[in-house]
Amino acid sequence: MRFAGPLIAMLMLAALAAPAAASGGGGGSSQAPATRQERLTSAETYMPMPTFSAGVLQRNDNQGTMVVDMGLDIPDEALRHRAQLNAPRLRDALRTALANYSSVYYRVHTAPNPTELTRQMQIAVDRVLGTQGARVLLANIIYQRPQRPSGR
């Protein structure tokens, strides 16, 4: 019974502290996590795009997957607004450009060519927007080989 008093006091303290900790009042930062754009850059002209992937199909076989992280730099506010309105069409055109590059231009066991991939994606973006002014910026290009059984 000697421990009953301190135990009750600790339980009451814990019960009072739990709502404060849950509401973020425990001295930690109550800011929301940064958006993807804020993590990459603080530039208002940058329009992040989702991660794109496409299969590398050569000789009627899946040779791997090409994964690209990228965004668009659009200094003109009116063009940036048009790009935001046409975001689904831009994503479709960029996926198609990546699929074309990974199946036609890319050769297995070589490094991806960022210049050629950027060129093809730039053409797709300019076609969707109807004008030049949005610049394709690649962040990552990753080629992933498929998992093969060890007996092959």
Rank of each mutant, 00 (worst) to 15 (best):
M12T: 04
L13P: 01
A14P: 00
A14N: 02
A15Q: 03
A17Q: 01
A17H: 02
A18W: 01
A18C: 01
P19T: 05
A22R: 03
S23E: 07
G25T: 01
G26C: 02
G26M: 04
G26T: 00
G26E: 00
G27R: 04
G28P: 07
A32L: 12
A32I: 04
A34K: 15
T35K: 05
R36F: 08
Q37E: 09
E38A: 14
T41N: 12
S42H: 09
S42W: 11
A43C: 07
M47V: 10
M47Y: 00
M47R: 02
M47C: 08
M49D: 08
M49C: 07
P50E: 13
F52Q: 15
F52N: 13
S53Q: 13
A54F: 14
A54V: 10
Q58G: 07
N62W: 08
Q63E: 05
Q63V: 09
G64N: 09
G64P: 07
T65R: 12
M66E: 01
V67P: 02
V67H: 02
V68T: 04
V68D: 02
V68A: 03
G71M: 08
L72W: 04
L72D: 02
E77K: 15
L79H: 01
H81T: 12
R82I: 09
R82A: 13
A83K: 01
A83N: 03
Q84R: 14
L85Q: 13
A87T: 08
R91D: 10
D92V: 11
D92C: 09
A93Y: 03
A93D: 06
L94N: 05
R95M: 14
R95A: 15
T96Y: 14
A97K: 01
A99L: 10
N100E: 07
Y101D: 06
S103G: 10
S103L: 12
V104N: 08
Y105E: 15
Y105K: 08
Y106N: 12
V108Q: 10
V108A: 09
T110W: 06
A111D: 03
A111N: 11
A111K: 06
A111F: 08
A111H: 05
N113T: 05
